[in-house]
Write a protein that binds this DNA or RNA. Structure first.
Lengths: 231, 231
DNA sequence: TGTACATCAGTGAACGCGCGTTCACTGATGTAC
DNA sequence: TGTACATCAGTGAACGCGCGTTCACTGATGTAC
C-alpha cells in the first residue's frame, strides 16, 4: 500500500480538491471514517490505523485528514462512538424480542457477545484498553452510556417480576456484565481457543447465572407468606 | 531518565564490566530482569519497557541487554513466564486451605483475581493481548500450563464429591474462568470504576455461580433414587 | 609470584523505520460585480 | 454572460521522535606458563 495520491487518482478515486455543497458536511469526512473503519475490520489491529494508512485507503494525503479531524485520537474516537451506539441498538432490539424478563436478559447476553465478536477492535477500546490510552473510553462514558443504563433497567424488571432473588440491581448487573464480558473478551483475545461450541458455552454460562439468580424454594415460600407476617 | 552509563556509574551502579564466576549465571541477566519487572510494576505499561528504559534502569547501555536476551520479546516473555508460574503457586496455595471442594473453588477465584490485580500488565499479556503480539502468550501455553489443568481438576473434584450438577468438567471450568476473568479484566481495565466493594462484588459473583452450579432439589432426588431405578 | 595472552561483557555510536503532525503552497470551485 | 477575485480542501515535503537492533571496539578479568 502506497500513500501517493497519484496512485489514488489512478485507481479512480475522487479528484483531490472537492468542496462540500452549501451547508453540507464535507463528503471526505465520511469517506475517511469509512476507510478507517474498513481498515480496522480488515486488519483487526488498532495500530494498523495510522494516519498514513487511513489516508492511503481514502485516496488522499495524510495531511488532508487534519482538515476534518483535529488528530488521530478524534478519528478513532468517532469510530468507537458510532459503534457503541450501534451496540446499544442491537442489544435493545434483541432484548425486545421476548416479553419474559429473564429470557430477555439471556437474549441481551447473546446479542452482546455476538456484537463484541463482530467488532473486536472497538470492543477492545471500550472495555480492554487502559485508562489514559487514546482514545480513552472513560468510566463515565460507559456508566452514563445507554448500554449499562439499559442493563440495570432490565435487571430491575426481573426484580419487579420476582423472577430473580432480591438484590441490589446494580450489583446483579455488574455481576452479569462481568461474566458475559469475560467470555467475550477471552473469545476476542484467543480466537483459536479450543472452546466448546460457542452457543453451548454461552448457554451454559447463562444457564448457570440464571440458575444462580432465581429465587430458591425457601425464598419463594418466604415471599408467599410475607404479606401475612408483616409487623 | 538518561541511559548514559556515566549516570549509572555516578549512582553507584556496578562497574560496566563484570564476569560471571565460573559456572554461574551472569548476574546482569537477573539484574536486567529485575529492572524490567520493576519498571513494569511502576509504570503499568508494557510500552514503557523499551530496551533503552530497561538498560537505563539496570545501569547499562541498551546493547548490553543483547548479551543476555536475543531480543525484547524474549526479555518480556521471561518476566511473564515467571509470573505465570507464581500465579499457579498462589492459586494452589489458596485452594489448599479448605478441604471442602466447593469452598476451595471459591478460594481459587479469590486468589486468582487478587493476583491478577497485583500484576495487571502480566495479566494483560497472558489473557488480554492479541494473538501475534509479542510476546505471544499462545493458547497452547495457557491450556497446557498448570493453571487451567489445576482448575479442571478442581472442578472434577467437585463433581466427584457430588457438590455440583453433573456436567462436562471442561465446560464448567471454562465457564467459571470466563466469569472470574471478566471481573479481573474489567477491574484492571477500569480501575476507577465505581464498583461496589471488591469483596462484596466478588462474593456476589462467586455466590451466583455456586448457586447456579449446585444440584437442584430434583437432581438430588433423582440421584438418590437412581441406584434402584437403573435398567 | 610475575608476565603474556585470551576471553568476552560491556561501550558508544549509528542504522533504518514508521509514526503523528506541521506548513507553505496550489488550484478548482464559488461568488461578486 | 464574462471576468476578477476570494476561499479553502487538498498537496508535497519535511520536522522531530523513540524505537529495536547492529557492530566494531575496549579493557577488566581469568588463565597458562
Amino acid at each position: 500500500m502506497t500513500d501517493l495520491p497519484a496512485a489514488a487518482l489512478a485507481q479512480g478515486a475522487a479528484p483531490h480538491n472537492r468542496r462540500a455543497p452549501h451547508g453540507q458536511v464535507a463528503p471526505l469526512r465520511e469517506e475517511i471514517l469509512a476507510a478507517a473503519a474498513r481498515l480496522l475490520e480488515e486488519r483487526n489491529d488498532i495500530d494498523a490505523i495510522s494516519m498514513r494508512a487511513v489516508a492511503g485507503a481514502a485516496g488522499v494525503t495524510p495531511a488532508a485528514i487534519y482538515r476534518h479531524f483535529t488528530d488521530r485520537n478524534e478519528l478513532i474516537f468517532e469510530i468507537c462512538e458510532r459503534c457503541f451506539q450501534e451496540l446499544d441498538r442491537v442489544v435493545e432490539e434483541a432484548a425486545a424480542s421476548s416479553s419474559d424478563p429473564l429470557e430477555s436478559l439471556r437474549l441481551r447476553g447473546r446479542a452482546y457477545i455476538r456484537f463484541g465478536l463482530a467488532h473486536p477492535e472497538e470492543y477492545r477500546i471500550w472495555f480492554m484498553s487502559k485508562p489514559g490510552a487514546t482514545p480513552d473510553w472513560t468510566v463515565d462514558r460507559i456508566m452514563q452510556g445507554p448500554v449499562v443504563t439499559h442493563l440495570v433497567q432490565a435487571v430491575q424488571a426481573c426484580l419487579d417480576a420476582g423472577v430473580i432473588r432480591p438484590a441490589d440491581p446494580a450489583l446483579v448487573a455488574f455481576g452479569l456484565w462481568s461474566a458475559v464480558h469475560g467470555l467475550t473478551s477471552l473469545l476476542i483475545t484467543k480466537p483459536s481457543f479450543p472452546w466448546p461450541d460457542l452457543d453451548e458455552l454461552l448457554d451454559h454460562i447463562l444457564s448457570i447465572l440464571a440458575a444462580g439468580l432465581v429465587p430458591g424454594r425457601e425464598e419463594l415460600t418466604r415471599r408467599a407468606v410475607a404479606p401475612f407476617s408483616a409487623p
